[in-house]
């Protein structure tokens, strides 16, 4: 018997702290696999957010730092400008990027910073217990929209890829999902393309990843995966939103 699949080298042995069925675990693994396959472990620098994804620096066996909530894109800008030959990516959740960090993300994109943002969109604030996020769907129930998100008072779900696509500074933007095998394979390809966009100096890349959050969606992991296709992807259509590489 030959081993055909084993843990990526770029992952530390630490156990993940994520909830059962959480998409962060899959996304973290994909990034580690891509870093291995593109032999980037010794060049990669990760900027971790505040939120569920913050402990990625305990999992990636690469240089990493934790930024203040929402400031990842600005910190990544500072790093990349000093070390252009490194691979610099900012791992951010929907609260981190689409809420408090909008200005930093928006302007890093507008300056065409050659960094990559891995944007995990699971529609809620996970770590803090399931509050509404900018990407929470209309009528979706969260701990801060107990009777469903009323878009008249709580705003509409934000499509970051489409918003950033209007900025001339952005080069490659794609929205993918990690809710079934075929989607995960596509997601991995998108991460590869985003990293390649950065390394070949073509500019700013962002991969938005629809990710299940069973605990806060109050669904089973399998129902969460289906919900992404049946409901979430209607508001957040999958596919390449912009590619001028």
């Amino acid at each position: 018997m030959k081993q055909v699949y084993s843990r990526p080298r770029s992952l530390k042995p630490a156990h993940f702290h994520y909830c059962p069925g959480c998409g962060h675990g899959i996304i973290g693994r994909l990034i580690a696999e891509v870093i291995d396959e593109m032999d980037l472990r010794e060049k990669a620098i990760c900027v971790a957010p505040a939120g569920c994804g913050m402990l990625v620096y305990n999992y990636f066996d690469i240089d990493a730092l934790e930024s203040a909530h929402g400031r990842g894109a600005a910190v990544a800008t500072g790093i990349k400008r000093v070390r252009p030959e490194n691979l610099v990516f900012s791992y951010q959740g929907d609260g981190d990027l689409a809420a408090i960090g909008t200005a930093e993300g928006f302007h890093a994109a507008n300056r065409g910073e050659p960094i990559t943002i891995i944007f995990v969109n699971n529609g809620v604030y996970g770590m803090t217990g399931g509050q509404m996020a900018p990407t929470t769907l209309s009528e979706q129930v969260t701990t801060t929209t107990p009777s469903g998100r009323n878009t008249k008072v709580a705003g509409h779900p934000v499509r970051i890829c489409e918003v950033f696509a209007v900025l001339d500074g952005t080069t490659y933007l794609e929205r993918v999902a990690v809710n079934k095998p075929a989607a995960i394979v596509k997601a991995k390809k998108a991460i590869v393309k985003a990293f390649r966009t950065q390394l070949t100096g073509k500019g700013f890349s962002l991969v938005e990843i629809l990710s299940p959050c069973p605990t806060n969606w109050k669904m089973s992991p399998i129902e969460s995966c289906r919900w992404i296709d049946d409901v979430m992807a209607k508001q957040f259509p999958l596919g390449v939103v912009k590619d001028v590489t």
Binding site: Y5, R7, P8, C22, G25, R29, K180, P181, V185
Partner: peptide, 9 residues
């Protein structure tokens, strides 16, 4: 591919 915990070889 599906495992969120990288628990399967």
């Amino acid at each position: 591919v599906m495992c969120p915990e990288v628990a399967i070889e």
